[in-house]
């Protein structure tokens, strides 16, 4: 394990993700779509990603977020949690989500 790996935040069910200070969700009027703006890149989340991001307020844990999404989407909470953990890790690694 490198020192970099040791410092890498890992997405867990009790992580409470939030957007870092330099990242914000912005509704693009021209495209009629939500964009995730950071200083060096623009990300265009799909509907599912957007549902997740809107629940990332730093208070809810990933487990709680998945519980809400399971109700919204009438889907299996374990399947949702697997996907959300994988993508929270990916977004954290890309520094657009803080765990």
């Amino acid at each position: 394990m490198t020192p970099l790996d040791a410092a890498r935040p890992l997405a867990k069910a009790d992580s409470a993700p939030r957007l870092p200070r330099h990242v914000r969700l912005h509704f693009d009027q021209i495209r009629g779509a939500w964009a995730l703006l950071s200083p060096e890149k623009v990300l265009w989340p799909d509907e599912v990603s957007l549902s997740i991001l809107k629940l990332c307020d730093g208070r809810r844990s990933i487990a709680e977020i998945c519980g809400e999404l399971a109700i919204q989407y009438e889907a299996d909470v374990d399947e949702i949690q697997t996907d959300v953990l994988a993508f929270a890790q990916d977004w954290s690694d890309r520094m657009v989500l803080r765990l």
Partner: peptide
Amino acid sequence: MKKSWAKPQMCQVSAGF
């Protein structure tokens, strides 16, 4: 309309582009 769960995707475009 009922929403259906799918793996979340995000398309990235560099700000410069």
